[in-house]
Design a protein around this nucleic acid. Structure first.
Length: 299
DNA sequence: AATGGAATAT
DNA sequence: AATATTCCAT
């Protein structure tokens, strides 16, 4: 194996090269739909009509090389311990209109995210607590109405169950979660992790919010998140034992808050979220990506 | 058409 | 079990 006959191996190697048409389109094969979706990558080849290349100009995802724009860091140097911002971007939230044809990863409702959710619902009042509104209040980029609707459905079930258990009683309201958890092992999960606003438990009583929403629109729209991303953090600290693998974070383009009536806007934007993709080892389930959004300052 | 909500599906 | 999708009624 010395350099005896170099020219030889080389020509042989060359001969054995597969012809172009024997090759497989890498661009499409090596990237799973999920991944592509997560990165907002479109498939040029896949398009029925793959002729013109008018690639999405915008803010792609330089996921790996993440840089960011100096956000509108409000006056908060003090407790700016971890001010990640984030948004989820999957395949349609990043402001990248197109590329929505791909399937986005399953959202994982971390305790933090759920807390946000509960907060939003609480502040909206049961009446206004509908998916769209909740979604807006949460202002987690990438969160879809469907995501919220789905979660809400589950949450309502949970509440209902709780009412059943603590319903007649006298004052234990708050302890409901605990009680439920005790009496029903299957209940102890996520929902029990965030306090349920008392008024949620009364099917009967009307909700009254502790504060009043702002009616007219002032000039300044509160942008929830400016972009500030930084790959660090306290991930994988979910009570559930979930572990997040910081994969990429996106910059956020806060959605414009529509001026709906005096319904929402009770509070300022909560803190930013970070998007995370978890790579489920090819184990458990069939190799699916999981999307996880979570706040960094909510709790 | 755009939601919300329950029923299903994965 | 947790989420997503579908179906249906506003």
């Amino acid at each position: 194996m010395r350099e005896s006959e170099e020219g030889s191996w080389f020509s042989k190697w060359e001969e054995e090269l597969p012809s172009p048409d024997e090759l497989m389109p890498l661009t499409q094969t090596l990237i799973t739909p999920d991944l592509a979706a997560a990165f907002d990558i479109r498939n040029p080849l896949k398009s029925t009509n793959h002729s013109s290349l008018s690639p999405p100009p915008p803010p792609l995802n330089s996921a790996v090389s993440n840089h960011l724009q100096p956000p509108v860091l409000s006056p908060h140097p003090a407790s700016a311990e971890f001010s990640d911002s984030g948004e989820l971007g999957g395949a349609g939230g990043t402001g990248d209109e197109p590329a929505r044809t791909l399937k986005r990863p399953r959202l994982v409702w971390t305790p933090q995210l759920h807390k946000r959710f509960v907060d939003a619902v609480a502040h909206l009042g049961i009446k206004n607590a509908v998916p769209k509104t909740i979604m807006q209040l949460m202002s987690v980029d990438g969160l879809t109405r469907e995501n919220v609707a789905s979660h809400l459905q589950k949450y309502r079930l949970y509440l209902k169950r709780m009412q059943g258990l603590s319903g007649g009683g006298g004052g234990a309201g708050i302890g409901a979660a605990a009680a439920a958890a005790v009496s029903d092992p299957a209940t102890e999960h996520l929902f029990a992790s965030s306090p349920v606003p008392p008024h949620f438990l009364r099917p009967n009583s009307d909700h009254f919010l502790p504060f009043v929403p702002v009616p007219t629109h002032h000039h300044h729209q509160q942008m929830a998140s400016a972009a500030y991303h930084r790959p660090v953090a306290h991930f994988g600290s979910a009570p559930n034992g979930q572990f997040e693998n910081p994969f990429l974070s996106r910059q956020a383009a806060q959605q414009q808050v529509q001026r709906m009536g005096p319904q929402l806007h009770g509070h300022g934007p909560l803190q930013p979220y970070v998007e995370t993709l978890e790579t489920p080892a090819n184990n458990g389930n069939g190799g699916r990506k999981i999307l996880t959004l979570f706040p960094t300052g909510g709790d």
